[in-house]
Design a binder for these strands. Structure first.
Lengths: 120, 120, 120, 120
DNA sequence: GTGGTCTAGACCACC
DNA sequence: GTGGTCTAGACCACA
């Protein structure tokens, strides 16, 4: 797989975000094993160390746990995952809404804009 | 003034964003003179080099113009400023909405969240 | 049996510690037979290799002995076990006390903390 | 400086612990600048990457903050540091006391042992 | 085979 | 000068 990365954000954070989302969206199931570090490195076209760092970060976030000599597994605690989903949602909304408010956009303006974007 | 800066984004970009917003919100009026590089550096507690870079960026964006020997001035072209406001709005909304969509949140969920946040 | 293991310490050492404690506390009596490698592997949910390693370690420490074709047995030398208990105690205390001292905690502070914890 | 490292624990964790203790004990003052990554690497005889990782960890713990292009600084929030000291104390005591209790040592036995060790 | 640590050395953006 | 990221490649312990 050929991948391209934004310049402004470190690759490892982009990958963290990406995998985290797959997990939050349940594209990978709780308890499921992730590909090995080396495989992911090939898949994403980066150095194994970079993947290692991604895994560290994901583990610290609690979405993944490493089992020595076996691999990395999506945490089985699915309530935790739904909680994270809620948390993520709230965080994104709060950040967005406060920013828009600070810039002086009205509620109607904002909501209209979003609806316009989300229309099929 | 004591300031704290996020670690992930360069200080100069944070300042660009900050000043840009003041202009968009018309806290600084079109045609108004910005403080000198030296003053801004003191005010924000950063190196004058950093302010130089901020000014360069702001000029490149077209929100300020430098008048030789006089200083930096907010552009007087106020239609340009309203355009920028629109552009900024659309950019932020698009980024936000596409991200939320990608994460699998429903339109209702998103709008309800925003309204909840914007309530008094 | 479902078990969880700390990430920083090897599973086999955690098991060594665990079994060793059972012996020191006389939950398993001197001369008693330990379950077979296979059974322990099932019981702890680990690979039989890991149990082998645990047994090797326990034998090296002198708390169990293997009798060919019969299995692993807790050593019958009970003075050895009491000695081990003393040794373990001293080791743990020394490690703890020197660490606390190094961190600059006073004797009173330490003892008060322990008593507070050990209260009913 | 020549340093030796325990085999069982990663070097970077040993350094984290070591520096963290210096900070908690106020051997380095709040707000003080740590030596540069490269200098520390030389001082401890390890690779700069290892120091980098140490700093990451220290920053995540909140005892240190990195200022871009300037260096790593001990956090100025000294109440946070005292809080950490208390937290660390409690953690160490709890871990120790529960372990001793689990092993069946009496309170008197434990306290006597500690006092014996701490005697001049 | 797996993840984890470490080194060597490069390059970058920031100040 | 500073910290931060990334690569390449080695070695280790664990299962």
């Amino acid at each position: 797989m050929v991948e391209s990365y934004s310049n402004t954000q470190p690759i490892y954070l982009q990958l963290v975000q990406r995998i985290c989302r797959q997990i939050v969206r349940r594209e990978v199931q709780p308890g499921e094993k992730l590909p090995s570090v080396r495989d992911l490195a090939v898949q994403f076209g980066v150095n194994p160390n970079t993947i290692q760092r991604v895994n560290m970060e994901l583990e610290r976030m609690g979405v993944v746990e490493s089992r020595r000599g076996q691999g990395m597994f999506v945490t089985e605690d699915s309530t935790r995952l739904t909680l994270m989903r809620e948390h993520l949602k709230e965080e994104l909304i709060t950040k967005f809404a406060s920013e828009m408010k600070e810039l002086g956009y009205s509620e109607d303006e904002i909501i209209a804009g979003i609806q316009a974007f989300l229309l099929p």
